[in-house]
Amino acid sequence: MTPSVPTIVIGIIIILGMPILLHIILSSSRTYTIPPTVLLVGPSNSGKTSLQTLFERGSSDTETHTSQVSQSVELNASTDSATKKSFRNHDATDGTYTKFLFVDTPGHGKLRNSAMAKLNSTEKLQAVVFMVDAAALGEPEILAPTAAYLYDVLLFVQKRATTSAKTKAAIPIMIAANKMDLFTALPSTLVKSNLEAELTRIRASKSKGLLDSGVGTDEIGSEEQDSWLGEYGSAKFTFSQLREFDVEVEVVPGNVTGDGPGAEKWWWWIAQRI
């Protein structure tokens, strides 16, 4: 029996089409299952892991130590429930909730590139929380590396906003000034101005600094303008300069443990952006 031509053609189409079909099904189902993500970055000992456990458990008595790996937790936020401004919403029954992933990253200098890689590769990244220890930010030994890390994060987000297609919207950044319960903590206005001043200095010294190994001499000119944080040529850096790139930066004070403004404001900031 000789098979008819249509049978062969249909057979071939099925055989060739199957992988493509499968791929389409798989890839489309994946985008549906990935929840929006909020990334938590910042230097070591600023209280990132503490905040994550606070949001997950509703209580802040969990001890934490230096993190070595990222950790994500699933949380639910609402913008229309009665308890929308509180992360202690586990028992809430009203309102609509959005599920999202809250991802903690290690802050240690040697592990920083894992956080930066997360920044680069996370799908549906909706917001970045950069946590700083407001009680330690008065010391130059803490301020300098904190600002250096923030510089990298801001520059990355700025570059992404300028180069990427429209689908990847600019990512809003909240600078969470933590440990406001301590009397040594700087007020958020000072946190902001100290960071801006230090970022100005870093920006200046980067522009005068040595080239990185691997950067060819022919690339120098084009690099310069792209890797300038904020308004090109401005003498002073301010966070508001990033608005030009649609990147919103806000400093919000709070604390995980002790008495103070608490973490509610941070939660509300996040809830509005997912």
């Binding site: 934490t64 070595q68 950790q71």
Partner: peptide, 25 residues
């Protein structure tokens, strides 16, 4: 504790500075 930095169970007989374990890690 987990490598992500969360203490899942602990017993303290006399309090120690958390930086000891942070430095250890």
């Amino acid at each position: 504790l987990t490598t992500s930095g969360v203490v899942v169970w602990s017993r303290t007989y006399s309090a120690i500075n958390p930086s000891i374990i942070n430095n250890f890690i």
